[in-house]
C-alpha cells in the first residue's frame, strides 16, 4: 500500500469516526453512548496520523515501484500490508453508506432477554397512563408481589416486530457495548393488527391477563387500547423512556 493510499485510508477512517460520533448521532446505531469520547479521540488521532504522514514522509515510497511485487509488505515502517485495504470498507461505509439500526429482523431471531431479579418495588406513580420501559413492565408483571400494576394503564415505546404465526411484539434492542451483543426485550401486544415491522410506536394499554400476576408465569403482554406512531428516539438502544429528537 502506497503512501497516498495510506494517507487516504487514515484520513477517511478518521473522518468516518468523526462523522459518526461528533457531527451526527449515527454511532448510537452501533455502539453504546459511553464510547463517544473514545471515538472522537480516535478520529482526531487518525486524522492527525494521516496528515502527518502526508506532510513529513514525502518520498517514502518513490522509486521502488519496479520491485518484484511477489514478496510481501511489512519489512519497513513506511508501507502497510495489503490486508489494510479492508479498512476502506468501514471507513467508506461510515461516511457514505451507514447501515441501518438493528430492528425487527434481529428482534424476531432473538430470544427474549431474561429480566433480572429485583428485591423490592417502589410504589408506582399515579400518572395515567404511566410511562414505563419494557423491562420495567416485565419485571413488575412477573415479580411484584403487591400487584401494583394490576388494572393500571401504562404507556410503552418501542418498535413493532411481527411474530411468526400471528400477532406482534413491541420490542427494544439493547446494547451493552456494541451491536454484536444486542439483546432484545419484548412485550406481546393483543387487540390490534400488527403494524408494519420496525414502526416506532407509543402504546397504551393494560396487562393482558395470562398466568398469575406477580409470578414468573405471568405473560409479558399487553391489551392495547391505543397506539400512536412516534419518531425513533435518539436513545433507541437503551430501554429507557424515550428522548425524542429535538
Amino acid at each position: 500500500m502506497k503512501r497516498t493510499a495510506q494517507v487516504l485510508l487514515l484520513v477517511l477512517t478518521g473522518l468516518g469516526l468523526l462523522h459518526t460520533a461528533l457531527f451526527t448521532d449515527l454511532y448510537l446505531r452501533y455502539v453504546k453512548e459511553g464510547l463517544r469520547p473514545l471515538l472522537i479521540i480516535s478520529g482526531v488521532l487518525l486524522l492527525l496520523l494521516g496528515l502527518a504522514h502526508a506532510a513529513f514522509d514525502r518520498g517514502a515510497d518513490d522509486a521502488h515501484d519496479d520491485h518484484d511485487h511477489e514478496h510481501d509488505h511489512d519489512h519497513g515502517h513506511s508501507t502497510a500490508p495489503r490486508i489494510a485495504w479492508l479498512l476502506f470498507l468501514p471507513a467508506l461505509s461510515l461516511l457514505f453508506y451507514a447501515p441501518p439500526a438493528l430492528g425487527a429482523y434481529t428482534a424476531s431471531h432473538a430470544g427474549s432477554e431474561a429480566v433480572k431479579q429485583r428485591k423490592g418495588f417502589a410504589a408506582l406513580p399515579t400518572t395515567s397512563p404511566l410511562p414505563m420501559t419494557l423491562t420495567d413492565f416485565t419485571t413488575r408483571v412477573q415479580q411484584d408481589k403487591e400487584l401494583a400494576i394490576k388494572g393500571r394503564s401504562v404507556e410503552m415505546t418501542g418498535f413493532a416486530t411481527p411474530v411468526r404465526g400471528g400477532g406482534w411484539d413491541l420490542t427494544r434492542i439493547i446494547f451493552t457495548c456494541c451491536a454484536a451483543d444486542a439483546q432484545t426485550v419484548k412485550v406481546h401486544m393483543y387487540g390490534t393488527p400488527a403494524p408494519p415491522a420496525n414502526t416506532w410506536l407509543a402504546v397504551t394499554g393494560t396487562w393482558h391477563t395470562q398466568g398469575a400476576l406477580g409470578t414468573g408465569t405471568a405473560a409479558a403482554a399487553l391489551d392495547v387500547h391505543a397506539t400512536r406512531p412516534i419518531a425513533q428516539p435518539v436513545n433507541a438502544f437503551t430501554d429507557d423512556l424515550p428522548l425524542t429528537p429535538s
Binding site: 446505531r29 455502539v31 464510547l35 471515538l39 480516535s42 468501514p90 447501515p99 441501518p100 438493528l102 456494541c178
Partner: peptide
C-alpha cells in the same frame, strides 16, 4: 443490513 450493522459495530467498537 443486520450483517453490515453488526460488522461495522464490531469494527467501530474495537478501533479505539
Amino acid at each position: 443490513a443486520a450483517w453490515r450493522t453488526v460488522c461495522l459495530a464490531i469494527t467501530v467498537q474495537a478501533l479505539p
